[in-house]
């Protein structure tokens, strides 16, 4: 049970003994409901909230890019040698953006709450925010791939495939000098 459910719909505890409730305690039967006040929001007010939500969305979308300088510094500091620390760090740099891209809706769930149709006016902004989020994750991924390449772990050069190359056998054989 999340803290939000606990707060909004607290469980009912019944005491084992027949005790009276303390003064001022309002005993209720059934679930405790916070009655929502009737919608009195004006159009302006909704716009403000939407703007806030989009602003928050941009923050979420650009957060990975903002952490890039730190990542770059870390990458520089760890060097290109193959060590357990640098390898695990590089793997995280590859795995994290990929999982984030596959679950790109999750960080933006807060946008979905609220009245139906509330986001209609800013639906394009929402899409852009999400695309921006994917783009910034791709930038992070690119940094990870760059690091992987710098570590020499991407088989993109002739030397990576040298073991599979063969040398021709010549028909002529020199059997020695006598």
């Amino acid at each position: 049970m999340s803290w939000y459910e606990e707060l909004t719909n607290p469980p009912i505890y019944k005491t084992a003994y027949d005790l009276k409730a303390p003064t001022g305690f309002k005993e209720t039967t059934g679930t405790f409901q916070i009655t929502k006040p009737k919608s009195t929001k004006s159009v302006n007010n909704r716009k403000q909230i939407n703007d806030l939500k989009i602003k928050k969305g941009w923050e979420v979308a650009l957060a990975p890019v903002k952490s890039l300088p730190m990542t770059l510094v870390m990458n520089y500091m760890t060097g290109n040698t193959l060590q357990i620390f640098s390898i695990s760090m590089t793997l995280m740099q590859l795995v994290n953006p990929l999982t984030a891209i596959f679950n790109f809706n999750q960080p933006f769930e807060f946008l979905e709450g609220g009245d139906p149709g509330e986001l209609e006016e800013v639906q394009y902004d929402v899409v852009i925010v999400k695309l921006a989020f994917i783009a910034s994750q791709l930038v992070c991924l690119a940094v990870g791939i760059y690091k992987l390449n710098a570590m020499g772990l991407i088989p993109n050069s002739t030397s990576d495939w040298l073991s599979w190359e063969t040398y021709p056998n010549f028909k002529e054989v020199n059997i020695g000098i006598f």
Binding site: G152, S157, T158, S159, D160, L162, S163, E165, T166, Y167, F170, E172, V173, N174, I177
Partner: peptide, 22 residues
Amino acid sequence: ASIGLILGDKSTLYKYLYPNII
């Protein structure tokens, strides 16, 4: 053994491995 030398930039400098040289 490898048929080439692997250079620092991961490119390969191929050896001339013709066997009948005296």
